[in-house]
Simulated assay, not measured.
Amino acid sequence: MHEAHGFSTRAIHAGQEPDPLTGAVVPPIYATSTYKQDGVGGLRGGYEYSRSGNPTRTALETCLASIEGGARGFAFASGLAAEDTVLRALLKPGDHVIIPNDAYGGTFRLFDKVAARWGLRYTAAPITDLDAVAQSLDQGTRMIWVETPTNPLLNIADIAELAALAHQNDAILVVDNTFASPYLQQPLALGADVVVHSTTKYLGGHSDVVGGAVVVDDEVLAEPIAFHHNSMGAVAGPFDAWLTLRGIKTLAARMDRHCDNAEAIAEFLAGHDAVAEVRYPGLSTHPGHDVAGKQMKRYGGMISFRHKHGEEAAVEMCSRTEVFTLGESLGGVESLIEHPGRMTHASVAGSALEVPSDLVRLSVGIEDPGDLLADLRQALGS
């Protein structure tokens, strides 16, 4: 699929040419662990064992690279498996990484409880403050790791500025693009070296598959990632790859609807008496609004807000919604509500990354916007 084609065309067709034998327009699920060889070392299409390569996974990886504007894509069993492989492939014990001081709880746990035992050092810094990030650099810094927007506070990192800072200091920039999706944001085009995703979220889009992805545009980085992808083995299975491909086909259409609904809800919450603060990059009051407008196509489907009446009121509100489902994860067609402090970000409790106890996070789905607004209105008690 030619890179000159538009986003949706590539999302539907890249890596997914009709089957040459049957003409099937959807890639088959190659549910096989091994492949017949035409003599010793005579591989058909390069396939020998499905940990090393599977045609369904290849289709997904080709599509991932295309929609992120990269040269190589890698599909993993989960987003955290993707993150762990990036760390093992590109760093060594003793290296230093700067991470967001409001990182996703699972990412923080990976650095703090897993990678630190391997000898990796990290510093948590406010990624919205370039000077603070620069002051966190040391002689061993080899990577700056950012989410933008961040989870769950929706802070915005300036990807181009952080990429320049990283490269000036012999480090690479990794961007977790899960919240934005490739449709809304293209980190590689802004100077990032590595993009990671939880494909469980917007890429899969239907809350029915767990997966992760890494995309790079540099073969020097791709080679160690490919080696560790195979050697560590946390690869996407063929059915998971097929489900994720199915989701990607409608990514652009879904993201526009997610954004439409989120914009309406953010405006409603910003005017509600029970809401102390709304964290949504699309609001002009958001401190990262201008940067988001520069590097994002639209502002996404995630909203966080602080309940004016405190933690218990926030928790109670989460239990009162009827259209919004109380649950972890995000990015599916259905709207979800959660209390990060007790749910997705419980792993950062007591740390410097602890989130406000009165915070509520919404993953705004694609239902009728009137129903979503009515549900929040009754749950907030007005």
Results as ranks from 00 to 15, higher is better:
Ala313Cys: 10
Gly79Gln: 06
Ala157Asp: 10
Leu137Ile: 06
Thr199His: 01
Pro20Gln: 04
Val216Pro: 13
Gln168Tyr: 07
Asp256Leu: 13
Thr150Arg: 10
Thr128Gln: 06
Ile248Lys: 09
Lys249Met: 03
Leu372His: 09
Val86Ala: 11
Asp38Ala: 13
Ala213Asp: 12
Arg44Thr: 13
Ala262Gln: 10
Gly331Arg: 06
Thr150Pro: 07
Asp260Ser: 05
Phe268Asn: 05
His96Gln: 05
Gly191Phe: 12
Glu17Ile: 03
Lys297Ala: 08
Asp256Pro: 00
Thr178Gly: 03
Arg117Lys: 15
His286Glu: 04
Glu311Ile: 05
Trp118Cys: 01
Val333Ile: 15
Leu188Val: 01
Ile127Arg: 06
Thr178Trp: 02
Val26Ile: 11
Ala226His: 15
Leu91Arg: 02
Ile156Val: 15
Leu190Glu: 10
Met255Lys: 04
Glu147Met: 08
Val195Met: 02
Trp242Asp: 03
Leu153Phe: 00
Ala24Gly: 12
Ala71Met: 11
Ala115Met: 13
Leu380Arg: 14
Val364Gly: 12
Asp158Met: 05
Leu353Met: 09
Met317Cys: 09
Gly310His: 10
Tyr30Arg: 09
Ser319Trp: 11
Leu330Trp: 15
Leu380Ile: 15
Gly381Thr: 11
Ala82Thr: 09
His345Glu: 14
Asn151Met: 08
Asp102Trp: 13
Thr325Trp: 05
Val175Phe: 14
Gly69Gln: 02
Lys294Trp: 11
Val195Gly: 04
Asn155Met: 06
His258Trp: 13
Val214Ala: 14
Phe74Met: 09
Glu83Gln: 15
Ala222Phe: 00
Lys36Gln: 11
Ser207Leu: 14
Ala24Pro: 02
Met232His: 14
Leu362Asp: 07
Val275Asn: 02
Phe268Asp: 05
Pro126Thr: 01
Gly247Lys: 02
Thr178His: 03
Asp260Trp: 12
Ala124Ser: 10
Arg320Pro: 03
Arg377Thr: 14
Leu173His: 04
Ser304Tyr: 12
Lys249Asn: 10
Gly233Asn: 05
Glu147Ile: 00
Leu43Arg: 15
Asp256Glu: 12
Arg377Glu: 15
Asp131Gln: 07
Ser347Met: 07
Lys294Ser: 10
Ala164Glu: 14
Arg121Thr: 03
Asp19Lys: 01
Ser136Asn: 10
Thr34Phe: 02
Glu267Ala: 12
Gln168Thr: 00
Gly69Leu: 07
Arg121Gly: 15
Arg10Ala: 08
Gly341Phe: 03
Ala292Ser: 15
Glu219Ser: 13
Ala160Leu: 07
Thr178Leu: 00
Tyr30Ala: 07
Val220Phe: 06
Ser52Cys: 06
Gly233Asp: 04
Met143Gln: 09
His286Cys: 03
Thr321Lys: 11
Thr250Lys: 08
Gly41Met: 06
Asn230Pro: 00
Lys113Arg: 14
Val216Lys: 15
Glu338Ala: 04
Pro224Glu: 12
Asp240Glu: 03
Pro182Phe: 00
Gly119Met: 07
Ala163Pro: 02
Met143Lys: 10
Asp358Cys: 09
Lys36Glu: 13
Trp145Thr: 00
Lys297Ile: 09
Ser78Ala: 14
Leu43Pro: 03
Asp170Ile: 04
Ala157Phe: 05
Ser335Gly: 15
Ser66Leu: 02
Glu322His: 14
Gly41Ile: 04
Phe268His: 10
Asp84Tyr: 14
Leu130Ala: 04
Ile248Asn: 09
Leu336Arg: 15
Asp368Val: 01
Glu367Gly: 13
Glu277Gly: 02
Ser357Met: 01
Gly341Leu: 03
Gln185Asp: 01
